[in-house]
Nucleic acid binder design. Structure first.
Length: 228
DNA sequence: GCGACAG
DNA sequence: ATCTTGTCGC
């Protein structure tokens, strides 16, 4: 089951200024080194969607067997949306529902790929970090578009990548998961190093741009087509 | 002051 | 995120 350290648990329905304080306090808890199982057997993806013009937040977690990437289990959770979308504070809008979904799983995943940034964030505490620090599950941020940072031209071949930089600091990697597709933005969430995160994301990719973990959670979170 | 801005 | 059709390219 999912247990959150009461020492770091906090309110979600807070003003932006307080959300910022929470980020500044929790960013110190982020572990940027590998603290995950050597041999993985369960990897998961999490994504969030909305219903009723945004009134309802819906989170979906898809757990896949590793390395076969076959869907093993999934969970969906819905709750009233309480926080607006404000760049830099996405986690305050989406995390509550994500925690609910994780709580429904029969077994927690050994690593979780999140749909958004990890430390590639203005205060180095994006969605993936927030979910990771609260749950202690190793997490990786896999975003479809850039939020902050600059980078050189990304090599065209599959698996090619360059550092995502911000004020001289490496905050992530811009990774070409397939030849001829737009790259994805990978960053540390919690309990994993960037090299390991990049490698793991590639291990979760088959024939599409996005890793299977996020493809499954996307599909489940948005009630789309697909058998599962 | 003027843009940029995860989902 | 979500609203939405056809269309260009491999």
């Amino acid at each position: 089951m999912l247990t959150i350290n009461p020492t770091i648990a906090h309110a979600w329905d807070v003003p932006i200024a307080q959300a910022r304080d929470i980020q500044l306090a929790l960013k110190e808890k982020v572990i940027r080194q590998d603290r995950l199982k050597k041999t993985l057997s369960r990897v998961a993806g999490v994504d969030v969607g909305f219903e009723d013009n945004g009134k309802i937040t819906r989170a979906a977690v898809a757990v896949l067997d590793f390395p076969s990437l076959e869907l093993m289990e999934y969970a969906i959770a819905r709750r009233d949306t309480r926080f607006p979308y404000v760049p830099g504070y996405l986690s305050f809008r989406e995390t509550p529902a994500v925690l609910d979904a994780l709580q429904k799983l029969s077994q927690l995943p050994e690593v979780l790929l999140c749909d958004g940034q990890g430390v590639a964030h203005p205060r180095r505490f994006g969605l993936a970090c927030h979910i990771g620090v609260l749950t202690e599950i190793p997490t990786i941020g896999v975003a479809k578009t850039r939020f902050i940072g600059t980078h050189a031209t990304v090599p065209e071949e599959k698996g090619g990548y360059v550092s995502l930089m911000d004020h001289g600091e490496e905050i992530g990697a811009v990774l070409r998961t397939r030849k001829g597709v737009k790259p994805v933005y990978v960053s540390i969430g919690h309990r994993i190093s960037l090299p390991t995160a990049i490698h793991l994301v590639m291990q979760c990719v088959t024939k599409y741009r996005l890793p299977e973990t996020t493809r499954w959670s996307d599909r489940i979170a948005s009630n789309k087509t697909g058998d599962y």
